[in-house]
Design a binder for these strands. Structure first.
Lengths: 215, 215
DNA sequence: TAAAATTAATCAAACGATTGATTAATTAAT
DNA sequence: ATTAATTAATCAATCGTTTGATTAATTTTA
């Protein structure tokens, strides 16, 4: 229940407003280009509340990352322990990842920038660690597929896996190129449901011909 | 020839030193995290020379981009006008792009950041424009392949093209994930000739099974 | 249950440090 | 002597952070 002590605007308290505004602004302009004053002006929460809740601007950023970094793993583990075929597991993984990253476009951009620039190594290490844990699970799908003879045995599994990630990540991080390639107007976007489906379909079809012995 | 008037260190004049140092630093830390003082300390050239030669920090950055943005197009046009098969044109394109982007890893990172963040729209527009011009040429390879019956007719050409770019770009921009996936030590790198070749081979093999009617 | 004490939350104002940029003086080559 | 190139010093503006005071809700005391 609301203690009545915390100030809220439209039902959202100050801590939450700081997080959401920081996420939005940093995704758009990058961490260093976003000042604490931009965040405070963007949500009407007093500047001092950043130190109050998060200790510092970096603390706010860190909280943002720890809040979001993939909860995908649980779902991957369910997939792994299911009785689906390796190919079903893999195509469901693609489905899962596209959905999750599209749900969190702003944060996915933040993550991409953080990994690219590699300032704040604690953050990049944290992110890399979690992505890698997921990758290990997905790698097991590939190996299972090869052992069962469903997948070709001569594929470069690490390269293939990193390609799947690359395609989804890049779609979100470099929408400007996508928009030009797909001839979209300025007000249109490459983040819609239609492109989300088209991306899934393309990825799955490409993997089908690349991986399966009998596509 | 050297007029003898410009100060040089190790044969490199101030303008050039500013450009190279800015490229190095911005690729490592991002544009906003690099101050004019970092650049001047990094190369020993006086701060005021940034205004003197480039007008401003942004001007220096712009000069960096305009200096580098792909001269790939000429080579693509040679490929286009050659009598190679569509598949040969495409696999040579992959070869060309991997080589060029690996030759300019630092600048490729700068480009990736610029496109992701999209501050300074003049820069992103400039980059997008040139990348798109190249994409149009490569698209013609796809269309030619489909018309001749060499390529499958049901492939999503735009998605496929953007995937090729994504995989190469991401390889350079998110080396941290690659290093973890390929279990490299801290001092090792994912930018070596071995990985460059492995990336090419993977891309070409994946495209072969994805595109060709008779792989 | 009323008054006093404590608490978390918020605020405007200011801190020293650093930012990108400019100045005016100096150097060095023609 | 002229001029391009370089320099140290300085500028206003903004940075992230901290301060001391204030508000309002809760807890404790009487």
């Amino acid at each position: 229940m609301n203690s009545g002590r915390k100030k809220t605007i439209e039902g959202v308290d100050s801590r939450e407003r700081l997080l959401r505004t920081a996420e939005q602004l940093i995704a758009e302009h990058g961490y260093d280009a976003v000042s604490t004053r931009m965040i405070h002006k963007g949500c009407g929460v007093n500047i001092a509340m950043i130190s109050y809740y998060f200790g510092s601007k970096e603390g706010l950023f860190r909280a943002l990352i720890e809040e979001k970094v993939p909860k995908i793993r649980e779902k991957l583990e369910v997939l792994r322990d299911s009785d689906q075929t390796p190919w079903e597991k893999l195509s469901n993984t693609i489905d899962l990842y596209v959905d999750r990253l599209f749900e969190n476009i702003k944060f996915t951009k933040v993550m991409g920038q953080e990994l690219s620039i590699n300032a704040r190594p604690e953050n990049s290490d944290f992110i890399v660690k979690h992505i890698h844990l997921n990758m290990v699970i997905i790698l097991s799908f590939f190996k299972e597929g090869i052992e069962k003879g469903d997948f070709k045995s001569n594929i470069d599994v690490e390269m293939t896996l990193s390609s799947i990630f690359a395609i989804i990540f890049q779609w979100i991080n470099m929408s400007a190129i996508g928009m030009k390639l797909f001839k979209l107007e300025d007000k249109e976007t490459v983040y819609g449901l239609d492109y989300q489906d088209r991306l899934k379909r393309h990825l799955i079809e490409m993997m089908r011909s690349h991986l399966l012995v009998n596509p």
